[in-house]
Design a protein around this nucleic acid. Sequence first.
DNA 1: CTATAATGCGAGCATTCACTCGCTTTTCCT
DNA 2: AGGAAAAGCGAGTGAATGCTCGCATTATAG
Lengths: 212, 212
Amino acid sequence: MARKPPTKPRKNALQERSRATVDALVEATARILVREGFEKTSTNRIAEIAGVSVGSLYQYFPSKEALVAAVINRHNEEIMGIVRSVLTEVTDMPIDKAVRRLVTVAIEAHRINPELHRVLAEQIPRAGKLDVEAFNREVHSLVRAYLESHRKEMRKIDLDVATFICVSTIEAIAHNTVLNQAEMLSEKMVRTLVDETTRMVVGYLRRSDMHG
Amino acid sequence: MARKPPTKPRKNALQERSRATVDALVEATARILVREGFEKTSTNRIAEIAGVSVGSLYQYFPSKEALVAAVINRHNEEIMGIVRSVLTEVTDMPIDKAVRRLVTVAIEAHRINPELHRVLAEQIPRAGKLDVEAFNREVHSLVRAYLESHRKEMRKIDLDVATFICVSTIEAIAHNTVLNQAEMLSEKMVRTLVDETTRMVVGYLRRSDMHG
DNA sequence: CTATAATGCGAGCATTCACTCGCTTTTCCT
DNA sequence: AGGAAAAGCGAGTGAATGCTCGCATTATAG
């Protein structure tokens, strides 16, 4: 029974100075994760880079994991904001336009801070697991809602399965494009990938009498 | 300039006894990774579980990373074996049959040792990075070769782009299916997912005059 | 049988690192 | 002003862990 370290702040930052301290700590954590990797990310180093003492760090974060979790949440919130707004924007657009927009935005989102994204995706152990699942569930339900309201453009198909496949596909292509193909990221290449991915997904969802 | 720990064996195992020791160490590493996670995987513990002393461990592995790398290689080789053989098996099959087979096998491969796969995918830091890239390149080139020899069934399309999209898609769906949807893995569900994924990928690759 | 090499051992060293605690400084409130 | 609460400090502690080294045991060769 390994007891997991707590994740909630030990104390709430009330005054402005302390809020700045908290921000500096989270920012420093992100910087170190990106520049030196998870292994080098020690609490002493975080405090040093944040220009704060270890003691102060532990006033607001009960553990190292809590700091990493804060970074993950900040990043997830940023992306969820984008996802929510693009799905609103797209609500009344037909499937082909909507999918194209989604694919484009997925790649853009991955390009915001690719190095942080890579570290979070590749190097982070347990922490933030629940948050990631919540994140996935929200994306799933938002996309599902869109598909549901556009059923008439689609062939007969299980909505959850279709959502699962679309989300997995778009996420994977965006992820691999940005993280494994950084060299080949000319604007032209990005356009090609968006075109192709859109074509595949739309072709999959559409009723066949709507082709062409 | 952080100096990376070496990955090559310090010494080659010549006699049978020492080969058994090496095996036991790799096996123990895999077991601990799965049962206790990367953080709990210490060299002392590995030696203990392998029924060997730390000293012996360091006779054959110059660092903890080298042991983890050995586990990764073993796992990758297992999967590459499957991929190679299925692509051979499929060489002369038409695209629809071939893709279906690939999707099926991708899911099967992820199901071989899902827990190990998860740990390797989610918890491992730097080590084995190069090997993973080599792995991806080989998969890419095998799939590309298949598509190249079946160009006549396909619409006009850049082969590298098509390969990239197909591999990313199939890999992601297999991965997410096995790791995030373990509950919903009835045989019926798997069949549905295989059907749908196949439909999407084949629809994407095929010349439109070959539909139906 | 003996000498030499191969293999195995595990206490302990050196280091790293998360985290504490007693104290000082700053801010807030009246 | 003055006292209390909030924020900040950083040397130090204890535990974990990667790895070494001198010695013991087992296998091979002559």
